[in-house]
Design a protein around this nucleic acid. Sequence first.
DNA 1: ACCTGAACACCGTTCAAGT
DNA 2: ACCTGAACACCGTTCAAGT
Lengths: 231, 231
Amino acid sequence: MATVPPAHLTPRKRPRQARATVTVDAIFEATIQVLLADGPNRLTTTRVAQRAGVSVGTMYQYFPHKQALLYALNERYLEIVAEKVERACEAQHGASIGQMVDALVGAYWEAKTVRSDVTRALYRSAVELDTESLIEAFGRRVDAATAAMLASAADADFADPSVVNTTLLTAIFGAVRSVFERNLPSALGGEVRGQLVVMCRSYLEAVKKEPERAAPGGPATANRTVIDDAG
Amino acid sequence: MATVPPAHLTPRKRPRQARATVTVDAIFEATIQVLLADGPNRLTTTRVAQRAGVSVGTMYQYFPHKQALLYALNERYLEIVAEKVERACEAQHGASIGQMVDALVGAYWEAKTVRSDVTRALYRSAVELDTESLIEAFGRRVDAATAAMLASAADADFADPSVVNTTLLTAIFGAVRSVFERNLPSALGGEVRGQLVVMCRSYLEAVKKEPERAAPGGPATANRTVIDDAG
DNA sequence: ACCTGAACACCGTTCAAGT
DNA sequence: ACCTGAACACCGTTCAAGT
């Protein structure tokens, strides 16, 4: 169903005893700390192990290599974000598209902002091709949640719901990342967040099918032309 | 005026003789090739030097360290993108906001897509804090170009042009990056591109000041509430 | 079952020597 | 002015030995 993570990135073994769980948690915590304090370039296995209070060898019992560690860290993080978004979407079933957009942007923004330092550190830790499968899985999961939500909207109906949904998410994911990446001052960030809601709302209004009277001119056609192109 | 790049990332010296220029170009070219073929993790100085047909020592004459090399590569690339966007914006002065959005999204999308493999490789090569200054400078430059363009619009006027402009760019930059990152099939990517235009257009329509009659209800208020919050 | 840390291969960076 | 490549410090990863 969902994409299986590449085998070489899977943890070598799962902790079975209590002290092992403690060890693994300590390693995760240490990784975040080193990432924040020293940046991804100075994130060395020895440094992480030292900070976690274990030997390198111990680390390699659970993670086959450094990349697997960062992979697991991102996985853990995306799991939390995905859950929050899913919950927010479920809570909006049957609501208006305006409320849906509010809730969706709000939940995603909030999830990324609670620990904005961690978010930024993780955005940068994502080296090498292999996070693609993670991000894809995350994207598909959120796609499903928002698609179901939009399909239940009380006040709108879309000609090509899947494209509309993907566009919406692409814009939201991207805008949020862009704010982090450009390191906008938080006041400006807040304004952009509000404007992002306005943007998504007006987009959905523009592409929704008119309920009664067909309006051949006007903004609704902008939608049709695009969809037609793709056949 | 613009942010000065961090001193430690500046090339050590500029090529003076013809053969030196050839050397530097070869190094850049080799870097891209290694990046594409082996990924950022296997991008080693020796490998780049070998592919460029020079010794490591030579590389270090022009770039104080590996990061400086990647920094210069990104710089070179963003320079090209910025120029294309600037030209597109200038060409639209006095046009309608609809045309502006078309041209802006078109130019940016095109610039990123001509060599989508290079674009993706560079998105991933941007490790460590130090690309922030590059991205900031790039952002400010494009900000200026689009702000001037929007200010000249024949059919619209905005209460807070700077926030509107930042939001627009944040969404466009982000959406494009998101498409690359999620590795959407190019057909779907094309559809998203078209929808992105629709989204930006309807956003600008929603936040523009009404020319004559003040409409206290309706979509225009969504704009006002947000701006007011930020005081 | 879990942990240790010396040992090995490899990478980033330097610098004395060459044209 | 530009180029070379052996040399050094450090990092990722392993594995024999310990509890």
